[in-house]
Amino acid sequence: MKVKEVADLVGISVRTLHHYDEIGLLKPGNITEAGYRLYSGQELEQLQQILFFRELGFPLKKIKEILDSPSFNREEALHLQRKMLLDKQRQVERMIKTIDRTIQDARGEIKMTNEQKFEGFNFDSNPYEQEARERWGDERVDQSNAKVRKMSKQEQENWANGMNAIYERLAALRVESPESEPSQAAIHEWFVYLNRMGSYSLEAFQGLGQMYVEDERFTKNIDQFGEGLAKFMRNAMAVYGDKNK
């Protein structure tokens, strides 16, 4: 199957498959003389594994490590993924039950306890933080977390407001070329703002932009300010990094 056929079958973008190829996560079985990528049933099985792990919140770097491991066993992985998805299903069911009870509580039909109001929530791990640690290392994340902890509640609120203001300015520019002067001026402001909290190299900044598109959690949050903003920021951040290296 050609790359477009695979993309249409699975429901992902051609760009995603190209990216998987570039990072060595999913290589096509053959490439024609004309340069067309061709995927066999074996590559489709591997793509299925990648998407199962992605659905469970695994970063691409970790998925590659798992699939490249000599001890990797597809059947064992499927059993593990099934168990994890069942755990996720049970958590979602608990949260749906909490929502239903909250609706009843709002109507005055029942009285919820404080404990019942938060059944189903699980904050044992932060998937964003884990992915950042694996992509850029513990030191940068620890520095950012330390700065946040030192902020007062008002300072944290001011920080969030400033961040949202930049998102809104970028959203207004997303119809322009990412290479335009206004776009690059706004993305420079974003680079400077992020470095007030952490320490982002140009490469890390570009990598963060790529994550905005690769990780649907980021895309969903960013695109609340305007549809397509995540992709626009990714492209503008890539241009900014290349121009300033």
Rank of each mutant, 00 (worst) to 15 (best):
L60I: 10
I103Y: 11
V14P: 04
G162E: 08
P59S: 04
N235Y: 07
K2V: 13
S40I: 07
N145V: 11
A132W: 03
M163P: 00
R74T: 15
K62T: 07
V239M: 12
R101H: 03
E43L: 06
Y39I: 00
F205I: 14
D223Q: 10
E129T: 12
S201D: 08
R74K: 14
I222Y: 02
S144P: 00
R15M: 01
E134V: 15
Q130A: 04
E93Q: 13
E157M: 05
R82F: 12
L173E: 08
T32Y: 07
D21S: 06
E115Q: 13
V213S: 00
K220R: 13
E139G: 04
K220E: 13
Q104S: 10
E129V: 14
H79Y: 09
G207V: 10
P182G: 14
G57W: 01
G241R: 05
V14N: 12
E22Q: 13
D142H: 08
Q42P: 00
D223L: 15
Y128G: 08
M112A: 13
Q48G: 05
L17Q: 04
R133V: 12
S144W: 03
L67K: 00
Q46K: 15
E157D: 11
N122A: 02
I103L: 08
D21Y: 03
E181Y: 02
E75P: 00
G207L: 11
R234A: 14
D68Y: 04
W159F: 10
S125N: 09
E155W: 04
G41K: 00
L47E: 03
L44T: 14
P182K: 12
M112G: 04
E131F: 06
H79S: 10
R217E: 12
P70S: 06
